[in-house]
């Protein structure tokens, strides 16, 4: 799946198509929300980006476990690629959320549990990339990164619960609406369809990016190996 040019090409095309449809749905299919106005349309891709951010780090967690068990190089590549992509989506989610929060909550930032946890989570994975950068031996780098990916991911829910006790004002989208939540809105079915389709699309975008990132890593490693061989020759 990761090595074939053909699979990558098809995946790229499918992803581009889905992204076009999702964008069209956000702007033309979903109705304008009454109390917040146009900015509510940010919500669809915001939720999708935040979801992919979390899912990507979960993939790194699983890849870390599998790497430690099997020692297969591909799982190290997947873990690394997934963190990079996850960080991009986490920043996208945080930035778009912030832009939505300005008109909805009248502030760019609150110390709400989900926001705070997301920020701390992003810092964990920045640290992950720095750790990788600081280690020269590839085998050790892979092992340490796997361990940190596991430890970091386990800490995320605990961090969330520790901050949770400070009351949340983040709207609860699925399930009952929190009484303290501002900016909650009633979702009509076109809205729900748009959100679910956005989440699905972003998941495919994630897989597409992951495949391409691993292929880029393969290229980098080939160049590196060639360099070493040239120097030793």
């Amino acid at each position: 799946m990761f090595k074939s040019d053909r699979v990558a090409q098809i995946l790229n095309l499918v992803t581009a198509g889905l992204l076009l449809v999702a964008t069209a749905m956000v702007f033309f299919y979903a109705p304008t929300e009454v109390t917040m106005g146009a900015v509510q349309r940010v919500f669809y891709f915001h939720v999708a980006a935040a979801w992919v951010g979390l899912a990507a780090f979960m993939v790194t967690f699983v890849a870390g476990l599998v790497y430690l068990r099997t020692g297969k190089h591909l799982w190290d590549q997947i873990g690394h690629a997934s963190v990079e992509i996850g960080l991009v989506f986490t920043v996208m989610g945080a930035a778009s959320g912030s832009i939505w929060a300005r008109p909805a909550w009248n502030t760019w930032w609150t110390w709400d549990p989900r926001l705070t946890t997301y920020t701390i989570m992003a810092l964990i994975y920045v640290a992950y990339l720095m750790l990788r950068q600081g280690l020269d031996d590839p085998d050790r780098r892979a092992r340490f990164a796997a361990i940190y990916g596991i430890v970091g991911f386990i800490s995320v829910p605990i961090t969330f619960f520790s901050i949770r006790i400070w009351r949340t004002i983040h709207p609860v989208v699925v399930g009952g609406s929190g009484d303290a939540a501002q900016g909650t809105f009633h979702m009509t079915s076109p809205m729900l369809q748009t959100m679910l389709f956005s989440v699905f699309t972003f998941s495919v975008v994630y897989v597409c990016l992951l495949v391409n990132r691993v292929r880029l890593e393969d290229l980098a490693e080939r160049v590196e190996q060639l360099k070493v061989r040239m120097l030793s020759a």
């Binding site: 720095m130 750790l131 020269d136 970091g152």
Partner: peptide
């Protein structure tokens, strides 16, 4: 793990503090 990295003196707090938030 941090002591193996190149910038080992600054590595530990960067790794540890976000995980130790709870």
């Amino acid at each position: 793990m941090a002591v193996h990295s190149r910038s080992r003196d600054v590595m530990l707090p960067i790794l540890l503090l976000p995980v130790a938030v709870p």
